[in-house]
Design a binder for these strands. Structure first.
Lengths: 252, 252
DNA sequence: TAGTGGTCTAGACCACGGT
DNA sequence: CCGTGGTCTAGACCACTAT
């Protein structure tokens, strides 16, 4: 049989569906071993490629992970809650705590691979900051980890006119982070707007965030405005979609 | 050669990387035709399965779509902006417009496959509404389309004690939708909390939303509270990730 | 060393789309 | 009709993990 019966789903889909149901129902729980290629070949009497195709469906859905030389395992989802408004409350960074520390349940968030420099603003950055294209901006790129696990990449841009020569342009921005520094400059952020998109990661992002196949990322684009509605920061974040739940509270 | 040279990426990855760069750079633009299986076999001298594997990488990244009998094409991303706070302002549903109509640029949003009924509250719903598990709730499930294209699935739950026997339990809830009805019952929503997760869709969702492979979805879980902080609605939405950008504005 | 997943070849038949 | 992508078989060699 080169193909399956008329109008019935392809074999690899039926195998994938069966396995998915095993997982969804909890008969195969988090971390449990899933039947591998050889098992499926025997159980269903299919060729190697067909068994692989079935497994690749589940891998691309992000519900199982393949570990080379070992087997296929059910994947868990234990996200971190990132509370939009609360984490950016003035009280927080006013108290010397950096914004991103609010997300950590036990404060073991770390940053690494920090790059700081001045660059001409790309078009969308200039637009967000209300500047002419190619105006100089301070660019801060870093990666955040929690317990060694990479969680997000972030790049923020601030007008060089404002930030150049200040601690904002240093690797270590001091207590309270860049928002505390902006406040000292008389430009305390008062309003924020965050924009969220989902997509599959680029291979570079997948490597930097150590994403397993089938994991989407969230892009969070935040613009910080002063009380006078002057844009003082644009922050472009890429979050591991399997690691975060975002929360926003607001009134009618 | 059964495999590629030592430590170099597999052939299918190199082909995928090349094509991805063609797309990223704009040499292949939105909607353009991408070299197909037969093209890749000739150009790179590889077997069918290898060419397919290269293309499947891009398909799973959501950057190309395969059209049977026709070819492979670069995919476009033109999302709708869904503005969290603004769309739920009291002025809106107070004026007889339903909440979801706020998202449509030209008002041609439609709902279909509406199901309304009373069910025992599942655990997470009961928790969100502050009810005991299995307390009766009114359940409203529907699908939203824009210009014929399915955009999101939504299921809302309201305490049956509140909503049973009212227009809320009807397919057509009347002008202003369920929020206007809640206001008439003296339970106008005053606070909202939205929670956002991202993941790959289930096959059912992919079918209902007509998602092409490689498209993630966003889950938006919203709880509506009265001024007295009584939970009056829990709404579980699943959005086509390629169709939406979410926006939230808030103050420091 | 035995077993696992990862890559690849060389074929085959099918369903669908546009000419 | 021919070319496209979709499914499937039957092999092969490799790299890695666990024992």
């Amino acid at each position: 049989m080169a193909t399956s019966d008329n109008d019935s789903p392809p074999v690899y889909r039926e195998i994938a569906d069966t396995l998915r149901e095993e997982i969804r129902s909890g008969r195969l729980s988090d971390g449990a071993r899933v039947p591998g290629e050889n098992d499926l070949m025997k159980q269903y009497g299919v060729a190697r490629a067909t068994a692989r195709q079935a497994l690749s469906v589940l891998i691309n859905e992000g519900i199982v992970v393949a570990i080379r030389g070992s087997g296929i395992y059910v994947r868990a989802f234990r996200p971190l809650r990132r509370h939009g408004p609360r984490r950016l409350s003035r009280a927080l960074w006013g108290s010397g705590r950096a914004v991103w520390q609010a997300d950590a349940p036990d404060g073991d968030f770390e940053t690494d691979s920090i790059e700081v420099g001045e660059v001409p603003a790309p078009g969308y950055v200039a637009k967000a900051l209300g500047l002419a294209e190619d105006t100089l901006v301070v660019r801060r790129h870093r990666r955040y980890r929690l317990g060694g696990r990479p969680m997000q990449l972030a790049t923020s841009y601030l007008p060089a006119k404002l930030a150049a020569g200040t601690a904002i342009a240093e690797a270590d921005t001091g207590p309270g982070g860049i928002y505390a520094r902006l406040a000292e400059l008389g430009r305390a952020p008062a309003h924020f707007t965050e924009e969220i998109r989902v997509r599959m990661p680029t291979p570079d992002e997948a490597r930097e965030l150590r994403l397993s196949p089938g994991t989407p990322v969230m892009d969070v684009l935040r613009t910080a405005l002063t009380a006078e509605h002057e844009a003082v920061e644009f922050n472009e974040m890429t979050l591991d979609g399997s690691a975060y739940v975002l929360q926003y509270d607001f009134d009618a």
